[in-house]
Amino acid sequence: MNVFRLTGDLSHLAAIIILLLKIWKTRSCAGISGKSQILFAVVFTSRYLDLLTSFISLYNTSMKVIYIGCAYATLYFVYMKFKATYDGNHDTFRVEFLLVPVGGLSFLVNHDFSPLEILWTFSIYLESVAILPQLFMISKTGEAETITTHYLFFLGLYRALYLFNWIWRFYFEGFFDMIAIVAGLVQTILYCDFFYLYITKVLKGKKLSLPA
């Protein structure tokens, strides 16, 4: 555990909580892509099956349980409790274009050809692109609520901090996991355009809106 890893995890947690609170306080999930939220629930579920097979630490177990719990709570909000506010008309990204290639790739490029390991690999690849329906939705509507941009910022920051964590671990522990690193790079790059808008607009007090 190093400072980048810990702040990365906390940033991830902050993102998830911000989203849940935003929906709860405003009683609305407007502007949120339910499809991205489904993908994140799939990511956590397929990655954390090792909760049943191995124990790493109390920290590790509790964070996994919290992430999974929050992911399903978010889904419950979007598709049940606040379903009337869900903007499905703008949430039109075709997730099969992500699921099929990612599923295929996880069978082809993995550390070990075993069910749990393939599911872990699948979750790493899927996470790297799971935000695309949300970004697509924002590009379609041309705007995002400020609180939604805070959510996206912390979600993007988390993987960027993990990149520093991996550099750290490579130098000080000789550890590296090529699958996680490459997927983490892809994931972070997908946020770059958003980071730019966040810094140049949202942090200066303006609403995030895209030119028509």
């Binding site: 590790n60 996994k64 992430y67 550390h111 070990d112 390991e117 872990w120 993990y162």
Partner: peptide, 10 residues
């Protein structure tokens, strides 16, 4: 191929 996949990260 890695010796033993060890996923201690989240």
């Amino acid at each position: 191929k890695a010796d033993e996949p060890n996923h201690d990260e989240l």
